[in-house]
């Protein structure tokens, strides 16, 4: 995915280590979405996706960092969020992106559900960690 963070003045960063931090990350993403003028439904979808992905980081990745920023594209304004952890990585990404598949608590909708809620979704994973990036456009 395109590098949206370099030179972006609106970048906010939240370390996420516990479920308390997941709440914090949700709020940061919501504030950005509100400031960017995303419609209520788009805001709700984005924050829900962020919640799923931030929780995944805590549960499977041992915590990490969430960075979010307002971005501009050809179709107007949007919000970009990156979830980066140093965990063991996802062994089978394809499987993890399948509905109903879960290796822990949750309904197995975390990754696949989050993907459906946003416009752009990218996942890079390896033994050194996992980075998921998403963008929600206001359209």
């Amino acid at each position: 995915m395109k590098d949206y963070l370099t030179g972006n003045a609106t970048v906010e960063s939240v370390p996420v280590a516990s479920s308390k931090d997941v709440v914090q990350a949700r709020q940061v993403v919501r504030n950005l979405a509100q400031r960017g003028g995303l419609s209520l439904v788009h805001q709700t979808k984005l924050v829900t996706a962020a919640s799923e992905l931030a929780r995944n980081m805590v549960v499977y990745g041992g915590g990490g960092v969430v960075r979010a920023a307002e971005v501009n594209g050809p179709q107007g304004v949007g919000v970009f969020v990156e979830f980066r952890d140093d965990g063991p990585g996802i062994r089978d990404v394809e499987q993890a992106l399948t509905d109903g598949w879960s290796s822990g608590r949750g309904m197995g909708l975390g990754l696949s559900g989050a993907q459906r809620l946003v416009n752009e979704f990218d996942i890079q994973t390896g033994p050194d960690g996992t980075t998921v990036t998403i963008v929600k456009w206001n359209r």
């Binding site: 709700t44 979808k45 509905d99 909708l109 459906r116």
Partner: peptide, 14 residues
């Protein structure tokens, strides 16, 4: 349940 929440849950697959 708020409308935006219901629409999000449907998209999420729940």
């Amino acid at each position: 349940m708020r409308p935006a929440v219901a629409m999000t849950l449907v998209e999420l697959g729940l």
